[in-house]
């Protein structure tokens, strides 16, 4: 599994919806798939499964809003 697939898998698990794997430009906050609680879960999973540390304050809803955007941000932090 490459990095992109891994990230999508984590997002899909936290959102409890596989749609994020298909629609990589879906705004997951607007779609109601992710709230602040799930966001924390996502951050914890990124740390546990991918070993990438995302500070909570770094997770800005304007720049982390779609699966593609999240993959880009994680690539920057890797």
């Amino acid at each position: 599994m490459d990095f992109k697939e891994k990230v999508l898998q984590v997002i899909a698990e936290v959102c409890e919806d596989d749609v994020v794997k298909e629609e990589n430009n879906l705004d997951i906050f607007e779609a109601g798939l992710l709230d602040s609680f799930a966001t924390v879960e996502l951050i914890v999973q990124f740390e546990e499964q991918l070993g990438i540390n995302v500070p909570i304050t770094e997770f800005d809803r304007d720049t982390w809003n779609t699966p593609n955007a999240i993959i880009d941000r994680l690539n920057e932090l890797k």
């Binding site: 609680f37 966001t39 924390v40 304050t57």
Partner: peptide, 12 residues
Amino acid sequence: DYVFMRFVFLMK
């Protein structure tokens, strides 16, 4: 961002 999410993060 500074209370709720940090609290949840800490607990988890």
